[in-house]
Design a protein around this nucleic acid. Sequence first.
DNA 1: GTTCTTTCGCTACGAGTCGTAGCGTAACTG
DNA 2: CAGTTACGCTACGACTCGTAGCGAAAGAAC
Lengths: 235, 235
Amino acid sequence: MPAAQPPASPESTVPTCTEPASSAPEAAHTTPEAVGATRAKGRPRSAAADRAILAATREALAELGWGGLTMGHVASRAGVAKTTLYRRWPSKNELVVDAVATLFDDLVMPDLGSLRADIEAVVAQFADLLARPETQAALLALFAEGIRDRQLHRRIREAIVDPQKRLVRQGRSAAQARGELEADTDAESAREEVDIIFDTIAGTVEHRVLVSGEPITPEWTRRFTDLLLGPLATC
Amino acid sequence: MPAAQPPASPESTVPTCTEPASSAPEAAHTTPEAVGATRAKGRPRSAAADRAILAATREALAELGWGGLTMGHVASRAGVAKTTLYRRWPSKNELVVDAVATLFDDLVMPDLGSLRADIEAVVAQFADLLARPETQAALLALFAEGIRDRQLHRRIREAIVDPQKRLVRQGRSAAQARGELEADTDAESAREEVDIIFDTIAGTVEHRVLVSGEPITPEWTRRFTDLLLGPLATC
DNA sequence: GTTCTTTCGCTACGAGTCGTAGCGTAACTG
DNA sequence: CAGTTACGCTACGACTCGTAGCGAAAGAAC
């Protein structure tokens, strides 16, 4: 892992681990760095190159898949030297995590006034996200690599999985405020319930789309929400 | 796919697609071919080599993961020339499917007298299977490759996914016979319900183990079964 | 036994990718 | 201005891929 960055550069400007590249969403597209924050001394890294590289990674991932994605290809597609890639990301894994993590930023918990409506809305959002080719190619490949690489596994959880659990907590809190769900008895039990609901929603939708290969229709979403709501749907 | 087998050999003896390698489970381990079926003219292919290759593939997969798995490594670990691999399997994908598919043969529907017990037993079996390193490394990698390779995707469904849906159908039928579930109204609706239950069980357990990275405890299985049974668990 | 057919292990090959190093140049700071 | 850092470019050794050619081994047919 300590492979790139030949000189002892400060890690703060590198999007590799500490600061995800999506933190400064849209600056000036033509002017590379209008980020007026702390600046180092020499020539700053081109933010446009960052954006071009991440976009090229997503495109190449959708076209060629994980196995077909080569660093050289990404570099030439982004109009960037291959060495520039390695100066910023130590390996393909890290690059793809950063390229993909931003895709999940759009998920929001809408608070539509009922638990059923909230669940169906989130499932629909997640289904739309999983319908995109770059998400399909990236997500399972990332998960597969994360099985072996514990550090990558941790990064995936921090950048992709954990932020989504927030949605479950928000939806639960809203439903509890409306009186649709009972208040939590203890924190540990609540945490476990959030985990189980999250794994069920994410796992089921992913399996339906990515493994079974069948689409998420409104009818399917309705039936799945019936299953999730359980007693609340009928009693 | 039409890459190996330089001469026009009959496909019946090749484990590549038509006949999975697990059809003749244990012959004589020393004598290569005791399969007294139809034999070609020349020197028969060593069944011991088949077994050694598939075993070496599973071992290497657990150690090195999909990306680290090289055909040369598998060959040397199996005590076989690299060319022998390519004479039998056209690519890494096909080899791994054959090596992994047999792992799922052990899953059975127990029929323990109640729907709850049946579900918990199947979840426990699936959890045990997913706890094995070779399953972890192989399953997600196969799914990931299947996203791009439609033919591989079809093979995965035929060899791994569809046989497991049988378990859901069996459990549903048993529960209907006991009166725990209503009889099906129409076949289409029943098929959709089998699909949704299957995706929920498989997807959730896989997501819990492989993505969230947390174990399947009896307590978790109980709570998840509560969720699945829904109204039946309380009313 | 002899002959025929097919598979076996081995070696070598061109093509492609990986990640790194070195160079001269561009960009920005003090 | 000098100092510092990032950039594009080229080249490199190491590795894997999938194939081809060879002589030898193992059964089948006679």
